[in-house]
Design a protein around this nucleic acid. Structure first.
Lengths: 356, 356
DNA sequence: ATTTAAATTGCATTCGAATGCAAAACTGCT
DNA sequence: AGCAGTTTTGCATTCGAATGCAATTTAAAT
C-alpha cells in the first residue's frame, strides 16, 4: 500500500538530501519536505482563510520562498473545479473600434482574481469551435462581445457556464447583458437636427445581422419619423471607414432631393462619410451637410473630424460586464440581469443649420 | 487497496445504471463505462497518433458524443506538463495603436493549438505580478509586447519559459525577438525631404524609456545629420495624439528659424501634430509644413490625413512571433533567434517641397 | 494539575487524463 | 492447428494541490 504519494528512493535514508531535479519546478511536496511539515500544511498556507498557526505559516513561507514555490493553478483547478479562467470572445470589430474595452475587461478580470482566455471570433463556425475550446479549458465563465448563435448560447446554458453578453442579447431568451441604449440621446439629437432646419436625412447602416446596428437603425428611424424628418435613403455599410465613404457615394447616385443630414450607425463610417463628402465631393461639413455618428471613439474627436456623436460608456460597461461575470462565477445560480447604460451626446462640430 | 479509482456504490451491482449526476460534466471514466471499455482507451481515442483500433474508436466516439464529452484540458495539462497556454503581455499602447496585432496573435496561436492568456501590463510592477500569475498558470511560453525589465526576463529564463519579444529586446542579452528596423526607409524618406528642399527639421519623440521610440529617434537623428538636415529641435511626446499636438505647439515657442518638416516617432502623434498645425496655427500641410510618421496605422491613411509614414508589417510580425513561440514550446532548447522585418514607406500626401 | 474545549496538523483520498508495462487479442505463416 | 510476431487493450500509477476526518497540540477553565 503506497500511502506516501512521493515514494522514497530505497537507497536514500533521508528525503532532505535529495536535491530538486534541476529545472523542475518546486511543488508543495518539495516545500513541505524542506520545511519539515506535511503537504496539507503548505496547501493551507496558500489558501486564504485556512486554519494555520503563525509559526507554521512562517516556516512554510520561508521554505516556499527559497524554492520559489508558487502554487500550480492547473492542479488547483483540477481539484477545486474552478479554473479562474474566463473566456473573452471578441470579434475583429470590437477590438478595432474599442481597443480599450478588451484592455479594461482584462484588467478588471485580473483584479477579480480571474484570468482572460482570449478567443477571436469572426464567423459563426469560429464561435462553434471557440465554445468547445473554452469548454475544454474549463472556463468558469464567458464574456461574449462577438457573434453567438442561439444554439451556441443554449449549449453554454446547459453546461451551466455563466455568460455575459456585451452589447448584444437575445430578446426572447433570458440572459445576462450589458448594453447601451441610446434612444434618449437619439431623440435629443434628432430634435436638434429638426430645429436646425433639417427635413431630409439619410442613414448609413451597419452589418445586417449585427444587433447593435439593427437596434440603432430602428431607434433612429423611429425618431426621425416621429420628429418629422423624412428618410431620404438608408444604405448598407459594414462599420468600416471605407463602407462609410462608399455609402455616401451611393447616396449621391439616388434620385430626389439630397438629404441635408446623414446619420451613420457608427463613428468609423461617419468619418468615412465625412471624408468622402469633403475631399471627393468638395462639400463643406457641416455647412453643406451635417453628419452624426455613434460610439464616441477617440479619433472621432480629433480636430479633423470633431464628430457629433453618441458615446457609449465603454469603460463602465466593461467594468459592469466583469462584475457580472465574477458574481456569477461565485454563485452560478444567480438570476439573469440586464444592465442598460445611457449614451451621452458629444456635441462636436459636424452638424449645423441646414443649407437653404 | 483501492485499485479502482471510481469506487462503486456498494448497493449498486451494475455501474451502468448509475446515471450521471445532473450538471456534472462527463469524464473519460463516464465515457469508458458507457462504452464498456477502459478509461485508457478513451484517453487514447482523443490523443492523435495513439494505437487504437477502428472499432474501438467508433465505440468510444459514439459514447463520447452521447455524453458530450470533451477532454479536460486542465487535467491533461497536469499530467503532460503542457498547458498549451501562452501568456500574451500587452501594454495599453500596443492595443490602442495595433489592435490587429493582438487579434492576429490570438488567431495564430489558436491555429497552432495554443491558447492566449491575456495580461495587461502598464507599469513595471504590473509586469512583476503578471509574470508570477503566468507562472502559476504554467504557461508554456510568453509573448511580450509590453515593458519587461531585465530581472523579470531573467526569472523567466531561469524557469525555462520561452519568451518572444515583440518590438523590443535587450541588446546585451541573447533573446528571441521580432522586430522592425526602419533604418533604410528612414534614409529614403530623409533623402526625399532633402531633395524637396528641407534643411531644418524637428523631431517629436515617444516615451523616454520606450525602446521603439529610442531606436527610431536614433535612426532619424543619424539620418538627418548624415544627409545635412539640421535638427531644429527634438521634443518629448508619449505616443498619443494629444502629445503630438502639444509637441508641435511647444516647437512654436522655440527661438530660431522654424523647421519646415516635423518627423514624429509614431503616426498618432503625427496626426495630432498635423491637426494642431492646420486647425490651431492655420498652416497648410504639406505646403507650409511637411510631416512624417511611423507605424502605418490604418487611420493615418484616411483622407483627412494621408500621412506619409513608414509602415511596420504588423501582420507578418505577429505571425512570426507566434511561429517562434510555438517552435520553442515544442523544443525548449531551441536557440535564440532575431527576426528583423523591413519597414515600407507609405508615400501619402503630408510632405511637399519646402516653402521658400 | 486536570479536564474540556478549541485550534492546529497530518493522513489519505480526490480531481481527470496520460502512459509504461504487461496481458490479451489478433495476424500471418508454416 | 500451432507458433511467433504484431497490434490493441487494460491495469495501475502519476501529475500537484485541496480537503474531510481523525489525531494531536495548545489554550482555557476549573
Amino acid at each position: 500500500m503506497a500511502s506516501n504519494p512521493r515514494k522514497k528512493n530505497p537507497s536514500e535514508t533521508d528525503d532532505n538530501i535529495i536535491p530538486l531535479i534541476k529545472g523542475r519546478r518546486a511543488t508543495s511536496y518539495d516545500v513541505a519536505r524542506l520545511a519539515g511539515v506535511s503537504q496539507s500544511a503548505v496547501s493551507r498556507c496558500f489558501k486564504p482563510g485556512s486554519s494555520i498557526s503563525g509559526k507554521m505559516r512562517e516556516r512554510v513561507m520561508k521554505a516556499a520562498k527559497k524554492l520559489e514555490y508558487q502554487p500550480n493553478a492547473i492542479a488547483r483547478g483540477l481539484i477545486t473545479q474552478r479554473s479562474n479562467l474566463v473566456a473573452v470572445l471578441v470579434s475583429g470589430r470590437l477590438n478595432l473600434y474599442y481597443p480599450e474595452a478588451l484592455f479594461k475587461i482584462t484588467e478588471q478580470l485580473s483584479s477579480a482574481g480571474l484570468r482572460a482566455l482570449l478567443f477571436t471570433v469572426d464567423s459563426e463556425e469560429d464561435a462553434e469551435t471557440v465554445i468547445e475550446q473554452a469548454w475544454q479549458f474549463q472556463v468558469d465563465g464567458v464574456i461574449s462581445a462577438s457573434h453567438m448563435s442561439r444554439e451556441q448560447y443554449k449549449i453554454l446554458e446547459k453546461r451551466q457556464i455563466p455568460v455575459v453578453f456585451f452589447n448584444r442579447y437575445f430578446a426572447d431568451h433570458p440572459n445576462t447583458v450589458v448594453y447601451c441604449d441610446p434612444a434618449e440621446q437619439v431623440s435629443d439629437l434628432v430634435e436638434q437636427l429638426y430645429e436646425l432646419g433639417h427635413r431630409r436625412a439619410a442613414i448609413i447602416k451597419g452589418p445586417e445581422k449585427n444587433m447593435v446596428s439593427v437596434e440603432r437603425t430602428r431607434i433612429v428611424t423611429e425618431s426621425l419619423t416621429r420628429t418629422g424628418i423624412e428618410i431620404a435613403a438608408s444604405v448598407q455599410g459594414d462599420f468600416s471607414y471605407e463602407s462609410g465613404a462608399a455609402g455616401f457615394q451611393h447616396l449621391q447616385t439616388l434620385d430626389g432631393d439630397a438629404p441635408t443630414a446623414v446619420i451613420c450607425i457608427n463613428d468609423m463610417m461617419a468619418m468615412g462619410c465625412m471624408d468622402e463628402a469633403r475631399f471627393v465631393l468638395g462639400l463643406n461639413v457641416p455647412a453643406d451637410l451635417s453628419i452624426v455618428g455613434f460610439d464616441g471613439i477617440g479619433m472621432g474627436q480629433f480636430s479633423s473630424y470633431e464628430l457629433t456623436t453618441i458615446r457609449q460608456p465603454i469603460g463602465r460597461m466593461s467594468e459592469a460586464a466583469v462584475k457580472m461575470i465574477a458574481d456569477r462565477v461565485d454563485r452560478p445560480d444567480q438570476s439573469h440581469e440586464k444592465r442598460v447604460f445611457e449614451g451621452a451626446v458629444i456635441p462636436g462640430g459636424s452638424i449645423a443649420r441646414a443649407p437653404t
